Simulated assay, not measured.
Amino acid sequence: MTKIVGYAPGAYDMFHVGHLNILRQAKQHCDHLIAGVVSDEMCLLTKGKSPVVPLAERMEIVSHISFVDEVVAEVVPDKVETWRSVQFDVIFKGDDWRGTPKGLKLERDFAAVGVDVVYFPYTIHTSSTLLRQALDGMVAGRPEAARA
Protein backbone atom coordinates (compact mmCIF):
# COMPACT_ATOMS: atom_id res chain seq x y z
CA MET A 1 0.00 0.00 0.00
CA THR A 2 1.34 3.39 -1.01
CA LYS A 3 1.62 6.06 1.66
CA ILE A 4 -0.16 9.30 0.66
CA VAL A 5 1.81 12.42 1.51
CA GLY A 6 -0.22 15.60 1.90
CA TYR A 7 0.92 19.21 1.93
CA ALA A 8 -0.95 22.05 3.65
CA PRO A 9 0.70 25.41 2.96
CA GLY A 10 -0.20 28.52 4.88
CA ALA A 11 1.13 31.52 6.72
CA TYR A 12 -0.42 30.19 9.95
CA ASP A 13 -0.08 33.68 11.37
CA MET A 14 -1.89 34.23 14.67
CA PHE A 15 -2.86 30.54 14.70
CA HIS A 16 -6.64 30.11 15.00
CA VAL A 17 -9.42 27.54 14.59
CA GLY A 18 -9.51 27.97 10.80
CA HIS A 19 -5.91 26.80 10.63
CA LEU A 20 -6.69 23.91 12.93
CA ASN A 21 -9.69 22.92 10.77
CA ILE A 22 -7.59 22.82 7.59
CA LEU A 23 -4.89 20.70 9.24
CA ARG A 24 -7.43 18.33 10.83
CA GLN A 25 -9.25 17.80 7.54
CA ALA A 26 -5.99 17.43 5.62
CA LYS A 27 -4.77 14.68 7.95
CA GLN A 28 -8.00 12.76 7.28
CA HIS A 29 -7.02 12.63 3.58
CA CYS A 30 -3.41 11.50 3.83
CA ASP A 31 -1.05 9.26 5.77
CA HIS A 32 1.72 11.81 6.29
CA LEU A 33 0.90 15.52 6.57
CA ILE A 34 3.49 18.18 5.88
CA ALA A 35 2.60 21.74 6.87
CA GLY A 36 4.38 24.32 4.75
CA VAL A 37 4.74 27.47 6.82
CA VAL A 38 5.17 30.41 4.46
CA SER A 39 8.28 32.46 5.27
CA ASP A 40 8.06 36.10 6.33
CA GLU A 41 9.56 37.15 2.97
CA MET A 42 7.07 35.09 0.95
CA CYS A 43 4.16 36.54 3.00
CA LEU A 44 5.37 40.02 2.18
CA LEU A 45 5.82 39.11 -1.50
CA THR A 46 2.47 37.32 -1.96
CA LYS A 47 0.21 39.17 0.49
CA GLY A 48 1.89 42.56 0.64
CA LYS A 49 2.38 42.39 4.41
CA SER A 50 4.62 40.65 6.89
CA PRO A 51 3.11 38.25 9.41
CA VAL A 52 2.63 39.37 13.01
CA VAL A 53 4.30 36.21 14.37
CA PRO A 54 7.84 35.44 13.09
CA LEU A 55 8.48 32.30 11.01
CA ALA A 56 10.39 30.37 13.69
CA GLU A 57 7.55 30.85 16.17
CA ARG A 58 4.86 29.92 13.63
CA MET A 59 6.79 26.76 12.75
CA GLU A 60 7.12 25.88 16.44
CA ILE A 61 3.38 26.29 16.98
CA VAL A 62 2.40 24.25 13.92
CA SER A 63 4.92 21.50 14.76
CA HIS A 64 3.04 20.83 17.99
CA ILE A 65 -0.33 20.25 16.31
CA SER A 66 -1.06 16.54 16.59
CA PHE A 67 -2.32 16.25 13.00
CA VAL A 68 0.99 17.50 11.58
CA ASP A 69 3.77 14.97 10.92
CA GLU A 70 6.35 17.38 9.52
CA VAL A 71 6.85 21.13 9.14
CA VAL A 72 8.85 22.89 6.44
CA ALA A 73 9.47 26.54 5.70
CA GLU A 74 8.01 27.53 2.36
CA VAL A 75 10.58 29.90 0.93
CA VAL A 76 9.73 30.12 -2.78
CA PRO A 77 6.59 31.57 -4.39
CA ASP A 78 6.11 28.66 -6.83
CA LYS A 79 4.27 25.74 -5.20
CA VAL A 80 5.51 23.33 -7.89
CA GLU A 81 9.08 24.27 -7.00
CA THR A 82 8.24 23.47 -3.37
CA TRP A 83 6.77 20.15 -4.55
CA ARG A 84 10.05 19.29 -6.29
CA SER A 85 11.91 19.48 -2.98
CA VAL A 86 9.18 18.23 -0.59
CA GLN A 87 7.49 15.57 -2.81
CA PHE A 88 3.81 15.32 -1.88
CA ASP A 89 0.84 13.61 -3.54
CA VAL A 90 -1.91 16.05 -2.64
CA ILE A 91 -2.04 19.73 -1.72
CA PHE A 92 -4.75 21.16 0.52
CA LYS A 93 -6.15 24.68 0.28
CA GLY A 94 -9.12 26.60 1.67
CA ASP A 95 -12.06 26.76 -0.70
CA ASP A 96 -11.68 30.53 -0.95
CA TRP A 97 -9.11 29.59 -3.65
CA ARG A 98 -11.56 27.45 -5.67
CA GLY A 99 -12.44 28.99 -9.03
CA THR A 100 -10.09 31.96 -8.59
CA PRO A 101 -7.26 32.68 -11.03
CA LYS A 102 -4.74 31.53 -8.37
CA GLY A 103 -6.70 28.35 -7.70
CA LEU A 104 -7.13 27.51 -11.38
CA LYS A 105 -3.39 28.02 -11.97
CA LEU A 106 -2.61 25.82 -8.97
CA GLU A 107 -4.87 23.07 -10.39
CA ARG A 108 -3.27 23.29 -13.86
CA ASP A 109 0.28 23.33 -12.52
CA PHE A 110 -0.27 20.35 -10.24
CA ALA A 111 -2.28 18.34 -12.77
CA ALA A 112 0.85 18.45 -14.94
CA VAL A 113 2.87 16.65 -12.23
CA GLY A 114 0.14 14.31 -10.98
CA VAL A 115 -0.67 16.08 -7.69
CA ASP A 116 -4.28 16.38 -6.57
CA VAL A 117 -5.65 19.69 -5.26
CA VAL A 118 -8.21 19.28 -2.48
CA TYR A 119 -10.21 22.20 -1.11
CA PHE A 120 -11.70 22.45 2.38
CA PRO A 121 -14.31 24.91 3.63
CA TYR A 122 -12.86 28.27 4.60
CA THR A 123 -13.67 29.27 8.19
CA ILE A 124 -15.48 32.54 7.46
CA HIS A 125 -15.93 33.78 11.03
CA THR A 126 -12.20 33.60 11.87
CA SER A 127 -9.16 34.57 9.83
CA SER A 128 -5.75 36.08 10.42
CA THR A 129 -6.91 39.10 8.41
CA LEU A 130 -9.83 39.66 10.80
CA LEU A 131 -7.56 39.17 13.81
CA ARG A 132 -5.04 41.65 12.39
CA GLN A 133 -7.83 44.20 11.77
CA ALA A 134 -9.02 43.78 15.35
CA LEU A 135 -5.49 44.29 16.70
CA ASP A 136 -4.95 47.32 14.47
CA GLY A 137 -8.23 48.77 15.74
CA MET A 138 -7.23 48.20 19.35
CA VAL A 139 -3.85 49.85 18.83
CA ALA A 140 -5.43 52.75 16.93
CA GLY A 141 -7.84 53.32 19.81
CA ARG A 142 -5.00 53.29 22.36
CA PRO A 143 -2.07 55.45 21.19
CA GLU A 144 -0.05 54.48 24.26
CA ALA A 145 -0.20 50.82 23.19
CA ALA A 146 1.51 51.68 19.92
CA ARG A 147 4.43 53.23 21.84
CA ALA A 148 4.80 50.35 24.30
Rank of each mutant, 00 (worst) to 15 (best):
G94F: 01
D95L: 05
D95G: 04
W97T: 01
R98D: 14
R98C: 03
G99E: 09
G99K: 04
T100H: 04
T100W: 04
T100F: 11
T100V: 04
P101F: 15
P101S: 15
P101C: 15
K102C: 02
K102R: 14
G103S: 09
L104N: 15
K105L: 11
L106W: 04
L106P: 12
L106T: 12
E107P: 11
E107D: 06
R108F: 07
R108E: 15
D109T: 12
D109I: 13
F110K: 05
F110E: 13
A112R: 04
A112S: 15
V113P: 03
V113N: 09
V113T: 13
V115T: 04
V115E: 06
V115L: 03
V115C: 11
D116Q: 11
D116Y: 02
D116F: 01
V117G: 14
V117C: 08
V117N: 09
V117M: 08
Y119V: 01
Y119L: 00
F120R: 02
F120Q: 09
F120C: 00
P121M: 11
P121A: 12
P121Q: 10
Y122T: 02
T123D: 09
T123K: 02
T123P: 01
H125M: 12
S127N: 11
S127D: 05
S127K: 06
S128V: 05
S128D: 05
S128K: 02
S128P: 14
T129G: 04
T129H: 09
T129I: 05
L130T: 07
L130C: 05
L131H: 06
L131G: 12
L131K: 08
Q133N: 11
A134W: 06
A134S: 13
